[in-house]
Structures are given as C-alpha cells and as structure tokens.
Design a protein around this nucleic acid. Structure first.
Length: 184
DNA sequence: GCAAGGATATCG
DNA sequence: GATATCCTTGCA
C-alpha cells in the first residue's frame, strides 16, 4: 500500500484529538513511544489506523486515511467483502467487485482491506518483523503534489483546531477519500 | 440526507 | 448503570 492521505493529531491541547480528554484506556498508546499503531473503533463498525508520532509523554498520532494498493488486490477484495456490515445485514452473498483505487480510499475501508482491528494497537510499525509495518518511500513526494485541508469529521472541535490544515494528501492520487473536490 | 452500529467518556 | 456522542460509509 502506498499511503496517499493522512491527518495529524497533535497533543492533549488539540481539541480534535482523542488525547484531548487526557490519558485513558483507549488512547493510552498515544502517550507511549512513537512508531506504534493506535487503532480505534468508530461509528460502531469501522476501524481507524493511526501511527504514534511523538516521544513518550507527548500524545500525538497520524491518522492513515487512504492508500493506493500496489499488491494483493484479491486478498483486499476478499477482506472488504468480509467486512461489509450493511450487505451482510441484508443477507447479500455476492458483492460487486471493488475498483482497485477504491479498495482503501478511506480510513474505515483501509482497515477493512487490511483486516486491521483494535487488536493491532501497540504493534511496532517500524519493526521489519511486524505483520504490519511502515516503510519509507525511495523518494519523498514532490512538495507541489502535496495538498492540505482541514481535517475531516471533527466539526465538534472548536477553533482554531477545526480549521488547522492538518490533513495532507497526494493531489495526483485517485485513491484520496471523499468527492473529487476534496482531493484538491 | 441519513441510518447502521458498538465502544467510550461522562454524568448520575 | 444510563446515555449522548463519535477522526465513517454507502445507499436513499
């Protein structure tokens, strides 16, 4: 997977972050060492994957919102089919094939495609032996390709947090989440 | 435009 | 112990 969209959540002062309520059982890993996975359940049915980014004691993480598949498309489609709550509720056995660029074009579906749930919390994403891991690109993305916008789904946060342009994405990628307008 | 869905933070 | 709320998604 090539990550193409992320959001930053920085510190207990960030009133859009789960860390805003202080250290709890759910967000505890955010207060620990960087490089760890933080996965939570949202809206009762989707998981969101975050990477802890700051040293112990400072609670910060980057939410992985979307990625472009590079391999394993069939496995991802199978995983997506198994995590389709609505279709399953309606008793539909066959789901239409999902286009490759849409397989992980959102934080919830990304976790579904990779079969990530809360049990992945605490995985060391920098350990080459981990089942789930982060790798650096051979070359950084050209700056002109990086778009920025306010973060999604945090309307509950007061200013200035609501408007901080802490959602970053690859303008050239068709796998960025949301309508075309949101992709810069 | 909105329902589905369950954990969780907060309040009693 | 109850309940309002939520870093989403896909269909009406």
């Amino acid at each position: 997977m090539r990550i193409v969209e992320v959001e930053a959540y920085i510190g207990t002062d960030d009133l859009a972050s789960h860390a805003r309520v202080g250290r709890t059982h759910r967000n505890e890993v955010m207060f620990g060492p960087p490089g760890m996975a933080y996965v939570y359940l949202v809206y009762g049915m989707y998981h969101c994957l975050n990477v802890v980014t700051e040293p112990s004691g400072r609670a910060a993480a980057v939410l992985i919102r979307a990625a472009e598949p590079v391999a394993g498309l069939d496995a991802m489609r199978a995983a997506r089919a198994g995590h389709a709550p609505r279709r399953r509720a309606r008793g539909e056995l066959v789901a239409p094939a999902i286009a490759a660029v849409r397989l992980a074009s959102g934080p919830g579906v990304l976790c579904a495609a990779l079969s990530i749930d809360r049990t992945a919390t605490g995985i060391d994403l920098l350990d080459p032996d981990s089942l789930l891991r982060l790798e650096l690109p051979r070359e950084p993305l050209a700056e002109a390709r990086i778009g920025a916008s306010p973060r999604i789904g945090i309307g509950y946060a007061p200013e200035p947090w609501r408007s901080q342009p802490w959602r970053l994405f690859d303008r050239a990628s068709a796998s960025v989440s949301g309508p075309a307008a949101r992709r810069g």
